[in-house]
């Protein structure tokens, strides 16, 4: 039963300023799915950028991309080998993999359907068009030749959606939950993209590594649209530790983890009952601040372990948001279990 205390806390709110927990959750996931589609496209483009720069004799490890998704088992069930075309198909167009670009867009579209009453029409139209366009592209097959055009289309359209949100959605809780979803997903995906570096895309024998190391970091930067900004901020040649510090700790570059967390924290401060979630953000930030950048840059295994740890922090942060805002007051779960 619902406790009297919960009723006492129930205050009539102006409907413009508060939203249903269910709708907030849909909005949050909508933003995560859009960001995930975009960042997955960026993840693939790391390899894409590398291929343009590396000597032909170098073998690129497409298998490692699958490892980063954390869905290696599913992949191996579905495909005979981790070759380029299978990896592309799995990550871009396979609906059986829930993290594929097509699955993310499809999920974003379904979430939008249930929130059509509060999201401006143009945003629905853009996502609808992107989904239909990508579906058609996917139906004709994402071949290595069409790969770059496909990835660019996805990245551009997701950016357009973010632009529409920026320009047409009022500053209400709807925007706040979009921001929470987007920034958390972005922080998470940026760490995964950094993980490409640690994942041994290139042969690790020390003699071979050095000449290509910088190329690799550069491709990570480019895939995050961060090359120019890095040059402006750092004003140094591309060096592993500097790039890593830039992507993890820089407070001004929009795709750096620290920047995402800061914007997420700002959004949280506009919400009630935000203590637990803000504490989790603080834990993440502490973790970032304590990172031993030079060691991580030099030792792929340490970097990989670090990425794993910070992703656990992100999961805790997500849980805190979910428990606080999507589950309703604690008394509710009691009520539901009866």
């Amino acid at each position: 039963m619902l406790m009297a205390s919960a009723i006492n806390r129930a205050i009539r709110r102006e409907q413009e300023t508060s939203m249903l927990s269910r709708v907030a959750e849909n909005i949050y996931w909508l933003a995560r799915y859009i960001e995930r589609a975009e960042d997955t496209a960026r993840l693939l483009s790391v390899n894409s950028n590398l291929m343009l720069d590396l000597p032909r004799s170098t073998q690129l490890g497409w298998a490692e991309i699958i490892a980063i998704t954390g869905h290696g088992e599913l992949f191996d069930e579905l495909y005979p080998s981790r070759d380029e075309s299978s990896v592309l198909s799995f990550i871009c167009s396979d609906r059986r993999y829930s993290g594929s670009i097509i699955s993310s867009l499809s999920a974003a579209r379904e979430n939008l359907r249930t929130t059509r009453d509060i999201i401006p029409r143009e945003i629905w139209e853009e996502i609808n068009q992107l989904y239909l366009g990508v579906r058609d592209l996917v139906d004709s097959g994402v071949t290595p030749r069409k790969r770059d055009a496909f990835l660019n289309r996805v990245i551009r359209s997701c950016q357009t959606v973010n632009g529409l949100i920026e320009g047409s959605l009022s500053y209400t809780q709807v925007r706040t939950f979009l921001m929470l979803g987007r920034q958390l997903e972005r922080a998470d995906m940026t760490t995964r993209i950094i993980d490409v570096r640690s994942a041994n895309l290139l042969p690790r024998s020390p003699g071979e590594l050095t000449p290509f190391e910088n190329l690799q970091w550069m491709s990570v930067l480019k895939s995050l649209s961060g090359y120019q900004m890095y040059r402006q901020h750092v004003r140094l040649r591309i060096r592993g530790p500097d790039v890593l510090s830039f992507l993890l700790q820089n407070r001004n570059f929009p795709r750096s983890v620290a920047c995402s967390l800061e914007r997420l924290a700002n959004a949280l401060t506009t919400l009630p009952r935000n203590e637990t979630a803000l504490n989790e953000v603080e834990t993440c930030r502490q973790h970032l601040a304590d990172a031993e950048i030079p060691v991580l840059a030099a030792e792929p295994d340490r970097l990989h372990a670090f990425v794993d740890e910070i992703q656990v922090d992100f999961t805790d942060l997500h849980e805190a948001i979910r428990q606080t805002y999507f589950n309703g007051p604690a008394e509710m779960s009691q009520q539901q279990s009866q």
Partner: peptide, 30 residues
Amino acid sequence: QQMGVQLVEGSDLVVGDDDCVYMRMVDGLA
């Protein structure tokens, strides 16, 4: 959308001990 009211599903609503109907909002019950 036209009336500017909330579109709710059954799971958004809860009836309290006081036999009043509330909806689960981000800010609490309304």
